[in-house]
């Protein structure tokens, strides 16, 4: 119930909970909310970027990492999920035109 000692008292918080420092939402790791995690099949992925566009939390990363598929197709970029912030909403899996993203249950106990 009490968080004494670790969190600020009421008078140490700016009035109304104003946050005077920009970008502080990065400190709030919303990945713990997730029940299902998106897993990208790099062989199926056609690098269309739709998941990156749709993700409401900017949790799809577009990385300059080369990837060669099992059929020998070479991509200059790779999409990965930032599990620190992905809430598991599943919009990426829903919108993926080649069904390259699977929603997989998180392990019970919530380990990352």
């Amino acid at each position: 119930m009490s968080s004494e000692g670790s969190l600020p008292a009421y008078y140490e918080i700016p009035p109304g909970g104003a946050i005077p420092e920009p970008g502080s939402s990065l400190k709030y790791k919303t990945g713990s909310w997730r029940v299902l995690r998106p897993v990208i099949n790099q062989d199926k992925c056609v690098r269309c970027r739709l998941c990156w566009v749709y993700c409401p939390d900017a949790a799809i990363l577009e990385l300059d990492e080369e990837y060669v598929t099992s059929k020998g197709r070479r991509y200059k970029i790779t999409y990965k999920v930032n599990y620190d912030y992905c809430k598991g909403c599943g919009v990426c899996a829903r919108e993926c035109p080649v069904n390259a993203i699977e929603m997989v249950p998180e392990p019970i106990g919530g380990e990352e």
Binding site: L7, Y10, I13, G16, G17, A18, I19, P22, S24, S25
Partner: peptide
């Protein structure tokens, strides 16, 4: 600045007590 952010159970009570 950010105004009107979500306050989870660790924060809401203090902000109302203000």
């Amino acid at each position: 600045v950010t105004l009107g952010a979500l306050a989870d159970p660790d924060w809401y009570y203090e902000i109302k007590y203000q």
